[in-house]
Amino acid sequence: MNAAVRARGLVKSFGRTRALDGLDLTVKTGEVHGFLGPNGAGKTTTIRILLGQMRADGGEVALLGGDPWQDATDLHRRLAYVPGDVNLWPSLTGGEVIDLLGRARGGLDPKRRAELLERFELDPRKKCRTYSKGNRQKVALVAAFASDVELLILDEPTSGLDPLMEATFNECVLREKRDGRTVLLSSHILSEVETLCDRVSIVRAGRTVESGSLADLRHLTRTSVTAELIGSAPGLAALPGVHDLSVDGARLRCQVDGDALTAVLAELARAGVRTLTTRPPTLEELFLRHYEGAAR
């Protein structure tokens, strides 16, 4: 058993809306897994099913080797969760909430707690009523990172944090990874996923559209080519696998499918190359490709 999360063909409907439509997700033990998709793609619904707060209408799901609905209480001893929209008890202080959640999860490391409070610059004596969204998120993050658990489920955890705190958050996630913990990180912030994650799953409209390591996904996608030519390359437009070609005098830009790169480079070499830049697509570009598909 080396998968922390294994979901196959998850289906969940709310009335007529089909929130999940055959979603697959596999998170290997010890990896940081990015769960990418725009708002409404089904990320939070999937997480609620993993937490046993909702039951899937169809499909199979296993969490840490158990059934997330049947074995919820036992499984929850081994995980910590940070919701996307953290709602806390207005009359309790941040410190009280951290300890409440920590105790419920079987105790937390006081040294680590103090260290995290300092790093996130959170005042634990304030009532939750007075916290901003970012500060409420920090309360849940401190409680999660200070707990001794195998799996962290983080639902868009940085949406209220400023850039400095995002850096702190990234360090914390990398430390969890070093300690051998598994992290499921849902996000629509691509740079975050790029720096932190070993593998990603991209979801759209309740389905997984891509899943694999970043290297795998890039292999599937186009490379962005920018070149300054000496001669001209008239044959380029006719090559299969060349997209969005634009020529501006000697400058040329295009997107190239992975398996067409050799032919394209040969064509460019024939024309003579002064400068050449090739760049792997950013996740933005990956995203655009998938969601353009959805719009069509």
Binding site: L92, T93, G95, E96, L100, R103, P124, K127
Partner: peptide, 24 residues
């Protein structure tokens, strides 16, 4: 004004939390 409270909590789980929420 809202006064600062304790930095550390002693609520013993769900029942302790419920007691806090209902007692006032």
């Amino acid at each position: 004004p809202s006064r600062p409270g304790p930095a550390e909590g002693t609520l013993p789980g769900a029942f302790g939390l419920a007691a806090r929420l209902h007692c006032g």
